[in-house]
Design a protein around this nucleic acid. Sequence first.
RNA 1: GGAGAGGUGGCAGAGUGGUCUAUUGCGACGGUCUUGAAAACCGUAGGGGGUUCACGCCCUCCGGGGGUUCGAAUCCCUCCCUCUCCGCCA
Length: 426
Amino acid sequence: MHDIKAIRDNPADFDAGLARRGLDAMSASLIKLDEAKRDTMQKLQEAQSRRNVLSKEIGAAMGKKDVALAEKLKADVAGLKDFITTGEEQERVQTKALLDALAVIPNIPMADVPDGKDEHDNVEVRIWGQKPGMNFEPQQHFDIGEGLGLMDFEIASKLSGARFVVLKGALARLERALAQFMLDLHTGEFGYSETYAPYMLRAEAMFGVGQLPKFEADLFKTNSGHYLIPTAEASLTNLVREQILDEAKLPIRMTAYTPCFRAEAGAAGRDTRGMIRQHQFSKVELVSITTPEQADAEHERMTNCAEEVLKRLNLHYRTIVLCTGDMGFGSRKTYDIEVWLPGQKAYREISSCSQFGDFQARRMDARCKAADGKQTRYVHTLNGSALAIGRTMVAILENYQNGDGSVTIPEVLRPYMGGLSVIKRT
RNA sequence: GGAGAGGUGGCAGAGUGGUCUAUUGCGACGGUCUUGAAAACCGUAGGGGGUUCACGCCCUCCGGGGGUUCGAAUCCCUCCCUCUCCGCCA
């Protein structure tokens, strides 16, 4: 959510920011809505002020049992009633019109985000490791998993339809092992606080992180009116909603391992095979709540935390910064980490780390204040996947596959796999 | 799911139609006193918004949203949440 005052003060900057996103200028229409609202407010407040004064005089007259004066004053103030009633209604309508318009406008990219139209204009910022050498033709993860007899899309479709999977035996355990490994790393070495939070949220919370109103079609909704979280970001970020935090306590760093549910509306035909794009997947998420000054450094730090997972798994990856045309709705800067998949012969997104500025904080009303400070201000929010579990499993299967169809388990995961070093067909 | 009771400032807790500009207590901060502290005493306080170069002035907020009234913390409607008892239950 944008600050209308900032738009009013600097409409040209705002429109220039929108243009970088490929959007038309909106400042003029927004300012018009705002001016109409403020005009109503001024007249309304003046009338309310007069009403308050007269009402007090009525009270005083009643107290002195001067009924005649009270009745005269009542007649005086009666004329204001209609004006105030319609003014209040008008203010509500105008305020809603402005907020509705603001609610669907994406965040403005930071100055150092590269301009571009789509994913082809993203810019690589670093690359780590190298493609594994293999003396056989690498298979894709679904062929490996099905070959092991431990990954079953067919039975999953009978249970739930397309875009679901059933994992068995060592692969089911690998899912758990990956989550444990990642959580231990982030809590033990990087200072994130492990958090368990709801998987179902109210509309207000979904609005807070920017999922609503614009992306309702991407969410699953329950018959209780809740929405299933598409990412733990939604739950974790909302933990600071409607609060004024002590700045000395920032940054707050939280992590959670949760299932994620995505309707994948509009993804028909994309990644239909395998585990890359599912309605249900798990993810270890990182969320940071910071002061405005801390946000940029925290973004780099968070991205490094996500990359560290891949380093320890010895998976080749590259980190890219998304161009203005490819960024998500609420983000002002996003790094994607793409892991190399030898079976697919492609880099695929395995993590996305974004900073939102105060975009979500305004929607959630999450603020902070220095202990000695008078002024409250909005916190900054950041989140990143570290990592998506399903896609990490895909990467391990494809990168650690052997010529005989077995899969070697990365060293760091073996303690979590009961010492198992190779997954073989049983 | 059924029945009942409640949501008031950082916390506790009054107020049930008219100087409420929200009583009081605790806690907090500043000061007086003191070598220092404690105690005592005095004083200061929140959020959002409009307007102003500024000082300031004004509007609004007693869980959220509507309504009644000249006037609402107080009355009505509605939603949310908490607590108690019953029922059910991993």
